[in-house]
Amino acid sequence: MIIKYSVVVSPSLKANQRQVTTTMPESTKMKKPDVKIVILGDMNVGKTSLLHRYTERKFKDTISTVGGAFFLKQWGPYNISIWDTAGREQFHGLGSMYCRGAAAVILTYDVTNWQSLAELEDRFLSLTDTASTDCIFAIVGNKADLTDPHAQAATSGGGQADAELGGVQTQPLPACPTPPASPLLNKQVSKEDAMALYGRVLRYKGLEEKTSPPAEKMCFETSAKTGYNVDMLFETLFDMVLPSILKKRREGENSTVDLEESRGSKRTKAGCCA
């Protein structure tokens, strides 16, 4: 009980707190995650592929994720832990555990599937109750290459692997969208829908729209297949969680962590989730 209590009180310190309390001899060698990001969304929207595109710089067929997969991403001097969760209902019960203390949540849907957006609100939003109180939300519409010609060319997320390919294709991009290689599918979710959802997420979390990042900045359309916007998504989020990393590092310097202070030092909010 004590364990859980401490976790709830100081969400952003979760990982370390748990280790201190559960395993006595804490290994100093483990790279401590500075901050936690969770990817949520219905099955088959491309959560694993997004992460895979970002970390491995390539797109390959994945199979349905089992439970959740934990990744540690080295970002400059910081260690960012990313939880790639299973979208299947079967694993729903674990969602809140993955989200505990998260500094950012990526809510992922499939732009060709309206239901996948609806699921975010129905099924996944409540899982974020255990996330950090100043958690940042991003709404991400994946598979944009299926509906948008300009997303079919690898632009940002392709990295080196796609550089040559992307370089050639990106040049005529804004002016003349070359006839798409594959017929475009009907886009079921517009960016406005996603932004509306973002507003509802903020309301659900009791966050003020004025003090939270604007919807335009936090709604993305990506393509894990071509790499479109993928780097942008992750880099933007990393930049935004940087303050909580720094805050946590500062706190980490004091060997004794004052839980009350860590909570008090957080941004004050009008309301707070239950």
């Binding site: 895979h52 491995e56 199979i63 994720t65 997969a69 934990f70 674990l94």
Partner: peptide, 17 residues
């Protein structure tokens, strides 16, 4: 069998019931 089936994405650490 479960491990064999989830080996497609091997870089991460899986946690599953």
């Amino acid at each position: 069998n479960l491990i064999g089936a989830s080996s497609a994405f091997q870089a991460g650490e899986i946690w599953t019931p």
